[in-house]
Design a protein around this nucleic acid. Structure first.
Lengths: 334, 334
DNA sequence: CTGTTAGCGCGTTCAT
DNA sequence: ATGAACGCGCTAACAG
């Protein structure tokens, strides 16, 4: 495989001139450029970015570490990230942690080894050690989707508290008093914030919080399925379920169908996260929809700003609103 | 940031010994290893893989170039790829081409610049130039999901022909004679194979192919929506629709609902690609389900074999079967 | 089991 | 507007 010196020889210039042409750095006359480009295509030369990265200390690679690319919410974020990053000349490495702190740490180490220029992280659990590790390596970092304890960090997330508050208010306005929450892990900020939003709405309505109806589980279908079965196994039964993510909602719906309960006639259901229209045959679920693509785009923009040397001691906590989309699953007033 | 020589100095050994410890290459005594590891953690040393890659000519990075990570079919493939690759110590770069040959070529060039160790490609269109380019660079390549003209290439795909044939046979067995195909782009092998499978089933049933009912479009919801509207705008109307991917099927269902046609009572619908259970509230669509995760896993396995030096002049064309899943949308015999 | 030498392919730095 | 010298951080090749 031809290298930059072969090209230089063939074009009758010095290697550094070829380098300048490739990277549009420094001047070079049109004639020189033409000769260099001819040599490049004759030799089929493709610059080696490992070598240039070693020298320039930039890899032109970013990383997105998330819990599960299989979740359309994260898929959409990933699309927003990749579109924006590739426009700016970066490639993106994806990593799935499956909410495992171990996997997360392994991936982050790998990414620092590769000297990625920046990292977007959806932290598994609190993310404390991970954030500390990345900062210690001076790798630019933006946290996505979830809050972390370390306030000296940029964060882009959605208003989980507000979305949960509004969803619960909707259920209350429809006459529900007995509302159960099917939640994710209790170490994750989105779980916590959604629970707090729910509680606030109840409190405002003068309804005491009932820990019997506050379930923690995982952000997946199986967990939603199991929590719904458990809740519906013993009296008193809630008249409405609030699932704190899309997978939990689908699991719950499956369980309710098995039990023979109709939605929304017997039990109302609301969820967090909408599905992309391309994935839905019959829109049915009332949800708090997060602007996932926009979240990805905003996060990568902040990261790109940092990379282009915008030195700022200001850390941003960007909180985008969730949009309540009312469909059939929440039912009519009762 | 500490480098390998700082570690060596601190541990009282030569740099190459540190290298051997890090990479488990060559021997080193337990005592030496302990001293080296102590030095590593004291200095917070993280090896620079751009430097080691430059020297060893391996980047430990693979790439998956596909049309759209937003499609659950490809998301699932991506998960199969990433799980298997990361177990083997590789990271994976993802690229979305949106079926654009231009984007595809741009990404492939970028990937060769990065000296990725191997590429998995879902070719936009025929993929002819792209395959030639990658082969010329001697980058190991496995084609995913689609056939290419160049037979000297490894391919992992699903039996589009067989799946389409079986779906059409199902519709025929239910009494349908007037079946329209809502297809993807006519330059893509999966479109072509699914059309041919459909035609074969018709031919066997003694039904002449009717080009009026063979529509080509795009593999997205909008296209499915438009094709369904067009077909249903003028007599004679088909009694069944065969959508050649999931997005087209959902677009068609939306159009039918707008028109006021019931599925399956007025029009039966079958599709290609199932959705993961976690994304479905009420399973409804009769489909040919592709083993997406397995496709990703098989493709990356072949790539990893090539990378570990299994020199083989044999190119594989792995064709996995599609599974027909019968649900309500195909209806009862009429 | 460990060390020495050399160089991977570029871009920084300084020079003209 | 272009070039020379050097070294980024690591490991292949060879030596012992």
């Amino acid at each position: 495989m031809a290298d930059i010196r072969d090209v230089a020889k063939r074009a009758g210039v010095a290697p550094i001139t070829v380098s300048r042409c490739i990277n549009n750095s420094g001047y070079c006359s049109p004639e020189t450029r033409a000769r260099v480009e001819a040599a490049i295509s004759e030799l089929g030369f493709v610059p080696n970015r490992m070598a240039s990265g070693l020298r320039s200390k930039r890899s032109n690679t970013l990383a997105l570490v998330l819990t599960d690319i299989t979740n359309p919410f994260f898929t959409t974020i990933a699309r927003g990230v990749e579109d924006t990053a590739s426009e700016a000349g970066y490639t993106v490495i994806f990593c799935n942690t499956d909410e495992s702190v171990i996997k997360e740490q392994m991936y982050l180490h790998m990414l620092v080894e590769k000297r990625v220029d920046g990292i977007l992280l959806v932290p598994a659990q609190s993310g404390l050690d991970s954030v500390a590790f990345i900062k210690q390596q001076n790798t630019p970092l933006v946290i996505l989707d979830r809050r972390v304890a370390d306030l000296n960090t940029d964060v882009v997330r959605c208003d989980s508290f507000g979305g949960a508050y509004e969803l619960t208010r909707l259920l209350l306005s429809l006459g529900h008093r007995d509302i159960a929450v099917l939640n994710g892990p209790d170490g994750v900020s989105t779980s916590i914030d959604r629970l707090l939003g729910y509680r606030k709405a109840l409190a405002e309505a003068g309804i005491p919080a009932n820990s019997k109806w506050e379930y923690f589980g995982e952000f997946n279908q199986k967990s939603g399925y199991e929590m719904a079965h458990k809740i519906m196994a013993e009296a008193p039964l809630p008249t409405a379920l609030f699932a704190t993510n899309n997978f939990i909602a689908f699991g719950a719906l499956k369980a309710l169908r098995e039990i023979g309960l109709r939605v929304p006639e017997d039990v109302a259901v609301v969820g967090f996260d909408d599905l992309p229209p391309a994935l839905v045959t019959f829109p049915f679920l009332t949800v708090a929809d997060q602007p996932a693509y926009e979240m990805g785009r905003r996060a990568i923009e902040i990261l790109l700003n940092k990379l282009s040397g915008e030195i700022s001691d200001q850390y941003q906590d960007v909180v985008l609103p969730a949009e309540i989309v009312i469909r059939q699953s929440s039912g009519q007033a009762r």
